[in-house]
Nucleic acid binder design. Structure first.
Lengths: 210, 210
DNA sequence: ACCTGAACACCGTTCAAGT
DNA sequence: ACCTGAACACCGTTCAAGT
């Protein structure tokens, strides 16, 4: 009678993500993860190739939640805005994994499949292919930058931010609101600025030698 | 006759930065760093409190290179652009340290002193205090996002990018140029978009209930 | 004063061995 | 098939001891 296995790849991933959410990226160790699952560290390697691989899978799962359907209606401004917001929201649900995304091309595959949809939407809306690529990249800059500067930018001496002038640091909720508003401002300004250089269809092309 | 000390805090920092530049953030260990200096790991702790502290100092040194003087002329667009470019250039010189910046408020102090200058310049140019804070935050989003998405965004199947259509990946120089152009596009669009919502001085204030 | 040896409490990963 | 013990080659950090 074969006893049912304790471990599974997906169970490991779930526990790992919970651990990262709870204890941060540095708080995830294979030994701790194993203990959480009632098992020893070595056992994990029957289901998961490597810790880096595991983190990669977690990141991919999160990026899969990004909604790129907003381009369907043909409005690239709406498409960009929707995508950026859902991207940011997806990262906000697991903020502790964001530093891992900084470690380079580990998560390239999922991320770029997503970006190709964005690029496609932009091209369909009349943008050139190179512009579309650059706009998609810019979107990632904004979202990723916002995700990892959240709470950490730390604005030192601004009394205008907290109604109570005796306080040195903004309250968490105030900081959160400020992060949110900053992101929305950046996104709106970026999209508005792009609209000024929309090509052929609506406007004459920008001067060639910038 | 007291033999002259081998170690110094600044010597350690220099070697550490060189090591990070060469071997990446993961390639920096206190033991390796000590070996590089002809010493044992324990000796470092006479001059440096902690590895995290050391990295914090490296980051602070890099952020100090950021040029925030561009606001002197009173042109906030020029100030923002100059600051963003020099910020990006400073990070580009030590790209391997960027992931460390993602690990939260460790480098808050230097960073926020810099940001206060930006905020000040924006307020002097007529922006409201809260807007100025949000714009400064947005700038950080853009630069940090660009710094860590560099080369890593990885655009999969775009033949338009490389002149030779047989190639699967863009050449490094092509990727670099694309990163650069994307950043410049994002920055220009962002600043242009901001200009559309410039307050009181030049335009009527935006509608209050957004 | 400054550096070292040795130790403590950890890591990720492998692999022969158990069931 | 699946898990374990033990080991390997590492970590950051401390601290009594040497010079």
């Amino acid at each position: 009678m074969p006893r049912t296995p304790i471990l599974s790849a997906s169970g490991i991933r779930t526990a790992a993500l919970a651990l990262v959410d709870r204890d941060g990226l540095a708080g995830l160790s294979m030994r701790k993860l194993a203990a959480e699952l009632g098992v020893r560290a070595a056992s994990l390697y029957g289901h998961v190739a490597t810790k880096d691989d595991l983190l990669h899978d977690l990141a991919a799962g999160i990026l899969e939640e990004v909604d790129v359907s907003g381009f369907a209606e043909g409005d690239w401004r709406h498409g960009l805005t929707t995508c950026a917001r859902s991207y940011r929201a997806a990262l906000a649900e697991h903020p502790n994994i964001v530093p891992f995304l900084a470690y380079g091309p580990a998560h390239r595959e999922t991320s770029s499949r997503r970006l190709d949809v964005v690029r496609g939407g932009l091209v369909a809306a009349g943008w050139g292919r190179r512009e579309a690529t650059m706009i998609a990249a810019s979107l990632v800059y904004l979202v990723l930058g916002a995700a990892l500067s959240s709470f950490s930018s730390g604005f030192s001496g601004d009394q205008a931010l907290h109604p109570d002038p005796g306080r040195a640091e903004p309250l968490p909720s105030v900081a959160e609101e400020l992060d949110h508003d900053s992101f929305e401002l950046a996104l709106a300004a970026f999209v508005d600025g792009l609209a000024l250089r929309v090509p052929a269809d609506l406007r004459a092309p920008q001067v060639d030698a910038g």
